[in-house]
Design a protein around this nucleic acid. Structure first.
Lengths: 247, 247
DNA sequence: GCAGACGCTTGACCTGCATCAAGGCGGTTC
DNA sequence: GAACCGCCTTGATGCAGGTCAAGCGTCTGC
């Protein structure tokens, strides 16, 4: 996706302008004036990531913020004595590593790039300076925190009450919705920019079970499965699967 | 518990002084100077809650903050089309309903009192005024948000990787730790101020399964079960149960 | 006192999902 | 192109825990 993204120049050197970045209005930086944003722009560095590269790792001290210009990354969470969990996906326009920054702690997990991506890095000091000065920016980060909390709690609710198949349906519907404010409700495609293992981890299940769930949904005509690209004949019918089964 | 708490006067009228409240240093208000806190104190109201009473309900617009002076309350989270989940317990010194306040949304769930409690209510307007003026207070609430997010993600990790028995052990160890910075590691007691149903919901399981897990742990001598009061012969041995079983 | 309600426990049963194991299909390396 | 490797899929099996149902103690109201 990202590697042939028309917005991102392919040749080196790789320079992006925050002021004209298409994530300008969605990222936290939307709270900043042009002048303040120019300050971010001046100190940031941009770099291309390959699939599988680590943005930040568990236990590492926070060294600033990462802002996804394009691509998708998986945010994992490490819990002592437990395997890691994939807690969320982060898409273009989202900020990574803000929690460690706000709380002044080390990173609580890893962020790994799922598709070729372009990610900007803003140094710790300028961000802190802006945060000190700029209330609305603080509020934006706070909202991000609140949104993540929402998502985590929603995840708990789903694991507690829904069978794997419904959770799969929810994930796909979610991906479909965010990739298409364009189309109507009709036939559409979504890409799954991750391995079955990652997806299983996101849904709190195992790859084998996930495959079987996808298979059964395909058998029921809810989707057509082509590896990492799914076709959805009818979004409304898929949506019906997102509620607990009647029995 | 709370009803014979020496710190809380039993007779009406019920008045507490924020400045001398024993939660003064743990609650978010710790960020405030005496003068600012006096402002909170002047506008707050205090009231006694019975077991089962609702502090705030799902969908209700935020009308301020609730500060638990004594007692325990269960915070539930509502997800559309799904049964409710118990996402956390809140103890004395904790603030309830801060998320709706910070984000300006309606309440995302319910808070229900588990034991006779005393809870103070601070009106919306004074809090907003303080938040506007007082950065450290904002930061405190932000930290609360971050801590809740941590807990929610830890919950996900546990559900994903641990069997019910280990999750039960974690809950009990957690309760034991917070109720006893006093004792050493030796024999101690913890109270479970909630129904089996609530506890099951907190652990993402069913009451029957929970009972069986407690039963099996009692059989193994890890605890002695007396309804809502558990005796723990050896906290270290219980702690061993909190990691994934070897097999 | 009794009746009803509620919460807890226990038993019996069954199923959804994890686990283990094997085979297929790209993709990469030499 | 052969050999390897990681990923996905499929099958077979077993079990943890969900579900249903009954019995029992405790509390409450009348």
């Amino acid at each position: 996706m990202a590697h042939d993204d028309p917005h991102i120049p392919r040749g080196q050197p790789l320079t992006l302008d925050c002021l004209t970045c298409r994530t300008r209005r969605t990222a936290e930086w939307a709270a900043l004036s042009d002048e303040d944003l120019a300050e971010v722009n001046a100190t940031k560095t941009t770099r291309r990531y390959q699939r599988g590269e680590i943005v930040y790792a568990h236990g590492q001290p926070c060294n600033g913020l990462y802002c996804i210009a394009s691509g998708t990354t998986a945010v994992r969470r490490a819990e002592p004595a437990l395997p890691t969990v994939l807690v969320r996906l982060a898409f273009a326009g989202e900020t990574l590593g803000y929690r460690a920054l706000l709380e002044g702690t080390v990173c609580a997990g890893d962020a790994k790039v799922l598709e070729p991506s372009v990610i900007c890095h803003v140094e710790l000091v300028p961000v802190q300076r802006l945060l000190r000065r700029h209330r609305p920016l603080v509020m934006r980060f706070q909202s991000h925190l609140a949104a993540d909390l929402d998502a985590a709690e929603a995840g708990l609710a789903q694991v507690a009450w829904l069978p794997v198949r419904s959770r799969v349906a929810r994930l796909i519907v979610g991906l479909a919705e965010r990739s298409t404010e364009i189309n109507g409700e009709e036939a559409l495609e979504v890409s799954l920019p991750m391995t079955r293992r990652d997806m299983a981890e996101l849904l709190c299940t195992r790859p084998e079970t996930l495959t079987r769930a996808l298979q059964s949904m395909e058998d029921d005509g809810l989707l057509r499965n082509a590896g990492h690209r799914l076709a959805i004949p009818s979004l409304p019918r898929l949506r019906e699967e997102t509620v607990p089964p009647p029995a």
